[in-house]
């Protein structure tokens, strides 16, 4: 994949992550610290998290086509790095109570859920594209039979 297309994909991923992180932060906040009130500055947090989570996705970039095994290995590494980034933010934050194990576990679980959801959305997008390709293939084969 060329770098331009890689960047476009990352931009789509960024918006997807911003939405999902906003949902996750809201749910975790309501669950563990429902009475806390934030200012406008905190509204930028999901965007910052999404931007930081994009950095580890650079490990999946390759000019040549990766084998399914190599891609899977890089995706696993990406997940570990994202978990690391988010946990680093959590442990250096004054707001997040990382002293509570359940908070840390919920953060780790949320990252995993978002990771799976992002890939699920992408798979649905590819499935819709494959459906369209199959229709075009059928028409092509009928025309040239």
């Amino acid at each position: 994949m060329d770098f331009k297309r890689f960047l476009v994909n990352k931009l789509i991923l960024f918006f997807m992550l911003s939405t999902l992180i906003t949902a996750a932060v809201s749910l975790i906040g309501l669950l563990f610290d429902g009475d806390t009130r934030f200012g406008y500055k905190e509204m930028l947090t999901p965007i910052e998290y999404a931007a930081l989570c994009l950095l580890p996705t650079l490990v999946t970039f390759s000019k040549r086509e990766l084998s399914p095994k190599a891609l899977l290995a890089r995706k696993a590494l990406m997940l570990v790095l994202i978990e690391g980034v988010i946990l680093f933010i959590a442990f250096t934050s004054d707001v997040i109570d990382t002293g509570r194990v359940e908070v840390v576990l919920t953060i780790v679980g949320s990252v995993l859920v978002i990771f799976v959801l992002v890939h699920l959305f992408m798979w649905f997008k590819d499935a819709a594209e494959a459906k369209k390709l199959n229709r075009e293939l059928e028409a092509f084969q009928k025309h040239h039979a």
């Binding site: 994909n9 399914p68 891609l71």
Partner: peptide, 16 residues
């Protein structure tokens, strides 16, 4: 050979 493709399925990471 496009005439020999039975179907196209989504694969991992934007491939088919």
């Amino acid at each position: 050979n496009l005439m020999k493709i039975q179907s196209i399925q989504p694969a991992f990471n934007g491939r088919f």
